[in-house]
Design a protein around this nucleic acid. Structure first.
Lengths: 168, 168
DNA sequence: CTTGGAATGTCAACAAGGCTGACATATCCT
DNA sequence: AGGATATGTCAGCCTTGTTGACATTCCAAG
């Protein structure tokens, strides 16, 4: 178990020790709490939760996306998503338009109210991220993204890259 | 809202644009799924969930920790933790010893069975982390940790640093 | 034109894991 | 003796995930 990276290898692999990996694991745990803390605080006052935030985020990023596509990005069941989506539509934050070519599909868009909520949430989240980026510097940020990308499941990486490159 | 980092500033701050921040936010979202995926799969077969994993992890890291300390690390209520802890103790994975100095305190330890479960879970999680580290390289890993640390809430950072330095 | 399959919506039931509030017990400290 | 602390526990609630079943609508292939 212990530190297989060392074995017959060189000092250059010291960053692969179980010790280093454990620090990374704990860093992910504690950092993710910070990552969601600010939007969570805002959402608590309204009637919503983190699931609503995620839906709003990706509808903002992919205007006109279909339910199926959103399902696959979020990685939840349609029943779960539908519950969230229904309240967002009822409350006038999201609009669901019947597809023109394929009328079975629904294309999702934020209403002005939805866009305003999106801004409030992502501003809060970006503020923290910006402070972290600034304090760590550009080189660290590049490494941060590189490790995160390598950590994703294949399916998730596909979605991520499509958003990263398509949305740029 | 858009790209305040650019304003009257230099090119050196291009990594602080909203665009770059958004990519980091999405990377965190997708990567965290991968981060928990392997332990979750293992836990699904047994009677446990992610909350049990977290408790086991930190009891392993801080043998003899008190319930109160664990509460503060995990950031949940004692009722939530207790539900998890009770099942772990009933199932013989965790042992709760009355404190010697202060008999009000309970000191938590993994039993051999608990330690074995811990190993199985953290092996799975470390494997993925190791692959990510290896593919990204030591410089990226340093940046990864740096940005995550900067992203934590103050309370979480205290716990993280205590574990990072104390546990080294 | 019919039929199979895809995309969507919805109902019901359930589980995990958060939360609050209230209360009990044992222990420590002053 | 009495207040504070550490823990455990009961009851109930919420969010968000799950499965399974079923209806509708529509596209596309035969």
């Amino acid at each position: 178990m212990a530190d297989r990276a060392i074995g017959g290898n060189s000092q250059a692999l010291l960053f692969l020790t179980d010790e280093q990996l454990r620090k990374g694991i704990e860093a992910m745990f504690f950092a993710y709490r910070g990552f969601t803390a600010d939007p969570d605080r805002i959402l608590a006052d309204k009637e919503y939760g983190r699931a609503h935030h995620r839906a709003i985020h990706f509808i903002h990023r992919c205007p006109g996306t279909t339910v199926n596509n959103l399902l696959s990005i979020l990685g939840v069941t349609k029943q779960s998503l539908n519950r969230v989506l229904r309240t967002l539509i009822e409350d006038g934050l999201v609009e669901s338009r019947v597809g023109r070519q394929d009328k079975r599909e629904r294309h999702l868009h934020l209403t002005p109210a939805g866009a305003s909520m999106e801004r409030e949430l992502s501003d809060a989240q970006r503020d923290r991220m910006r402070a972290a980026y600034r304090s760590a510097g550009p080189v660290a940020v590049a490494g941060f993204r590189q490790v995160l990308e390598a950590m994703m499941d294949e399916d998730m990486r596909r979605h991520y890259l499509a958003l990263r490159d398509g949305g740029a």
